[in-house]
Design a protein around this nucleic acid. Structure first.
Lengths: 197, 197, 197, 197
DNA sequence: GATGAATGAGGCTTCATTCAT
DNA sequence: CATGAATGAAGCCTCATTCAT
């Protein structure tokens, strides 16, 4: 009796609209002020009541998680791209870690909730993290198999390294070269043969 | 001119006593609650007015800096000890970085203000940081000279690495092995020959 | 497309089912959290939309009233039982008041809306209350006629006393003896000869 | 060097002023809206920041307790007056209970926090309550000794009765006669010989 | 009928910092 | 010098109720 035909009930068009509008605003907002900005302010800026925001995203982490999903897909695309590239497994891992660092640097202050999510494990963010840890492990295993990465390194550690590297760049460090250096150090940290040695 | 001879005002004594008492309390407090705790609470716990605290320490960072000085001395002692040890320059650098990480982990949440201090450079903490960066550079230079460290690594980068490593351990990660792994990765990152390779 | 026979609307069945399910859930909920709990939560727990809840019960009081009806019947049964018992009219009144107190204590915080209903008189609860006041009056009249109750007492007052007694027990007073004492005091309050005198 | 002469340091005149102004406003406010009114609103009305109110009164109960102190003194005065009156101990108890009921009715909704305070016992209100329970016990003991009150009644129960009686009157009952009736019932509840019998 | 999204005021609380005393 | 009162914006979150779908 509905307009259905298939699955789609009533997507609550307005709800969807609101949800995505909130996401847009939040993206903008977090980009400007970092992920610690006021949720109320986001709601206001989105032109919705605070309750509406809370209905859609029960917590800051939930909002963040939703926000990251879009980027998740980018990251996933990048992963696929990396896997298609004609380079060895070690270089692949390196590129993946670079991608991870970029992802983690999407917003100011993002590394912190991600790190926390790893130990809370009830957080909406932990799923996301877990996924990328797994991916990291896959890349890592290949590199280890090919003798390109130390056998004692674990995917989780690399992920944490990426977080940490992102965190360092977090502050308006003005010093971009440090970020580069850290990436390089990180690489020569897990790689059997350092990249610039 | 002081309280010494005759009329004996209590000024200096008071102030000193207050200052050190505040420091004791703050040390305790930050140990328990991390460095983000309320300054008011510290003042109250120390039994002084908020104004008094502000007179002695103009900002949270100033308090932190003063607090770290005690530890600075420990760290400096450790540095001296390391320099007396009968190991090569590479191992010395490694031990110094370990010491640095320990120092940075003194309080929960300490790495963040330190990182920020590096880019603000008006902060009371930057002096402290600068000192340790310099020390790090000395160790590093020796190691590089002996071929134990990559020539492209800078002291500042190692300091940041130490901060980052401390930051990662910050959360109740429950996973102590990660911390170890990060230290190892960090080492094989700057070292020409990794430690467990 | 429906599950029934032919044209088959689901109206009545659905509605009835919903209504009673809401009631079940609300009963459970109010038992746990007291009558001041969130209606939204009840709707959610019942698996219906907030609107549905409101359709069935226009207000919290309406829900409460419906909820009490089930208990009303119990109470009515108890009234009938009391009237069949082989005791004098005074004892009957006493037992009825005990029954009333039990009824009023069904949920945490119930006495308050009942009290309010008495003075608002547009409330869905006032009907319920009125009924019991009337019953109380009947018992009371008999007792007064037999010389067992003070002539100056009114049914309404006894009802209020029951409410008040229930209200006192409302808090987790931990002190059950107080509840007993209050019942006793209440009895010797209206009775011509106190029960433990 | 102040106006003192003895202990009084600096009473923080402005603080005192604020404090009492808040109290005045709160008194007014609670009289109008009942004790459940918004604390923020009180702060605003008093022309102080919310923080100021919280500094002076850490919780609603604390504010209430302070507010009641003025009345406490009245009540205490009344107690003294009653004790000077030329009536027997039973009548004294009756008058004391009346005073208690009046006190408890000072603000709309006051009985509830008082009741809760009795079981929480960390509440700023419990002290006040305890005091009056004790006083009640003294009056009661005298009456019991003179054969004017049932021996099985306890001071605590009478206090609760007073609370309950006040609570009943709490709603805009419009029915003043009920309040009277309840007082009478309460009296004939504890008294060996009812007052209107 | 049912749904559940939206509202949005309103509650409580915290805190860095200033300034009169 | 020390005090600690005052500020007051901000933060987070809840909930009864309405209404478009």
């Amino acid at each position: 009796m509905d307009e259905t035909g298939m699955g789609a009930r009533k997507p609550r068009m307005d709800a969807q609209r609101n949800r995505s509008h909130i996401l847009e605003v939040a993206e903008q907002f977090f980009s400007e002020q970092g992920v610690a900005g006021s949720l109320d302010a986001i709601a206001k800026r989105a032109g919705v009541g605070a309750g509406t925001l809370y209905r859609h995203f029960a917590s800051r982490d939930a909002l963040l998680a939703a926000l990251l999903q879009a980027r998740d897909q980018e990251l996933d695309a990048r992963r696929a791209a990396i896997q298609r590239e004609e380079v060895d497994s070690t270089e692949r891992l390196a590129r993946w870690l670079d991608a991870l660092i970029d992802w983690v640097t999407a917003f100011d202050g993002l590394p912190a909730p991600l790190r926390d999510a790893l130990s809370e494990d009830g957080s909406p963010l932990s799923l996301t993290c877990q996924g990328f840890i797994t991916t990291t492990e896959e890349f890592l295993r290949a590199a280890q198999h090919d003798g390109g990465a130390h056998p004692w390194v674990r995917g989780r550690d690399l992920f944490l390294s990426a977080l940490a590297t992102g965190w360092v760049s977090g502050a308006a460090m003005a010093d971009d070269s440090s970020a580069q250096a850290l990436r390089a150090m990180m690489r020569s940290g897990w790689a059997i043969r350092g990249n610039r040695e």
